[in-house]
């Protein structure tokens, strides 16, 4: 079993630094964009898109999802996103429509 741990190829430090730089730039972007966007209604979607991209970087590089081979690792994040999305949508089927029909 120990052998399996050794077979891992460590990621290059350089890759991590590039990812980190990307993350910092995206943080700057989300800040700048938040101040400038009109109409405000779109701002949240832009903010969430940027946050999603940043999470994608963290998940794939820092958390090594990109290099995992088993299918189950590929499924986990889409699964949690789908579950969360369904929970939000079904809750909003109430929150957004309350008092509309009545």
């Amino acid at each position: 079993m120990e052998n399996r741990e050794v077979k891992i190829h460590p990621v290059k430090y350089r890759t991590y630094v590039f990812v980190w730089m990307g993350l910092v730039i995206l943080t700057g972007l989300t800040y700048t964009v938040a101040v400038g966007i009109h109409p405000a209604g779109w701002a949240i979607f832009v903010a969430l898109a940027i946050a999603g991209t940043k999470s994608g970087l963290v998940l794939n590089y820092f958390m090594h999802l990109k290099s995992e081979r088993l299918v189950i690792f590929k499924v986990i994040i889409p699964l949690v996103m789908a579950v969360f999305l369904v929970f939000i949508l079904l809750t909003f089927s109430d929150v957004a429509f309350r008092g509309v029909v009545k």
Binding site: T27, T30, A43, I44, A47, L48, A51, S55, V58, F62
Partner: peptide, 21 residues
């Protein structure tokens, strides 16, 4: 992995609390 999770949560908390336009 746990630490990165904490990071990801903050990545969402930050715009949702500090950057509401």
């Amino acid at each position: 992995l746990y630490w990165h999770l904490v990071d990801i949560i903050w990545i969402f908390l930050y715009p949702l609390f500090y950057l509401i336009t």
